[in-house]
Design a binder for these strands. Structure first.
Lengths: 173, 173
DNA sequence: CGCCAATACTTGAGGTGTCAAATACAAATG
DNA sequence: CATTTGTATTTGACACCTCAAGTATTGGCG
């Protein structure tokens, strides 16, 4: 109701360093939340479909996908590396798949510490069915973006990933 | 060894639909894997730091973050919605936080089915300490991108997310 | 040969996550 | 007011996932 205007807060023409930092922090935070929610949504859709269509899970699917490209089988440790999960985890998932007959463990002749894991023919057949559908799901989920946009997104994520991985120093030397 | 050239497979000047579809599928798949690995890397870095610096976890942090913006407290169901996880999960995380005295459950006077969850003053203090560091971590992790690039990434992910969420029909109506 | 460190994997405890069934309370209905 | 219906949360069974400790087995070294 007052008529005074002089007391309104001034709008600086040049933003100070602190303000810029604050804005950037905020932008990064929002970006991170969007990245997280985007990935989460897609992942949850895939899990859901894997469950509905094939009564399986993403980690199982991922493990089988690795095995499919390695007809000679993979060591547990190799699976662990490729799936970027711990060895104990691989043990558990492999147990489940083995119980369902989709996969077999074969003790290495030369070094009996080693377990070589292979797809059974049943597992291979089942995986091929799943892989085809899976690829289509992904294509559909990403169909909102043009090839050009996909390339752009790929590049931006590439830079981000490189920086994140590159700065992995300083934890426990 | 033959000198005949006519039998070489022709290279079409215009790619057929099948080839285009195949390439697009492949691009989508690679993009998805990169998205996944990027998010995973960042998430794992944050988890690691939360563990090292504050001996806590990401879900606990996220729950406390929600409570900080709601001094009157939140119902379990509200937490469930905001964190995008199931109610059972919220129960578990809240149990842990309550055991450590960072959070309290208060039964609603008017409707005794409702549990209102609040940060304790101890929890609030601890959260503020964590939040400041957390924001800095994020800013650092995303510092590889210019503000312009951040904006671009934000927009691309926005389109992707909108499409994914928009196509959520067709499961169980 | 015999011991010992390194390697490959498994096990067990603890925190997340999901779903479906159980519990506790409230509201609507007759 | 008693019964039914609905809502808020918890519980229990599984599946992941990590870390740290345990078990086998190998290969080197005295």
């Amino acid at each position: 109701m007052s008529s005074r205007k002089a007391a309104l807060k001034s709008v600086p023409l040049v933003l100070d360093a602190e303000t810029r930092a604050h804005d950037d922090h905020h932008a990064s935070l929002r970006l991170w939340l969007r990245l997280l929610s985007c990935t989460g949504q897609i992942e949850s859709r895939i899990r859901q479909r894997l469950q509905l269509s094939f009564n399986t899970t993403l980690p199982r699917f991922d493990l089988m996908a690795q095995l499919e490209r390695a007809p000679e089988g993979l060591k547990m440790s190799e699976l662990s590396q490729r799936l970027m999960v711990t060895g104990g985890n691989v043990t558990g998932i492999t147990d489940g798949l083995e119980k369902e007959g989709l996969v077999v463990r074969e003790v290495d002749i030369a070094d009996r510490r080693i377990n070589r894991v292979k797809l059974t023919s049943d597992g291979a057949r089942q995986f091929r069915r799943m892989a085809a559908e899976h690829e289509q799901w992904i294509a559909d989920l990403f169909s909102a973006l043009s090839p050009r946009q996909k390339g752009h997104l790929m590049a931006l994520l590439g830079e981000l990933k490189a920086h994140v991985i590159g700065s992995k120093r300083g934890t426990t030397p």
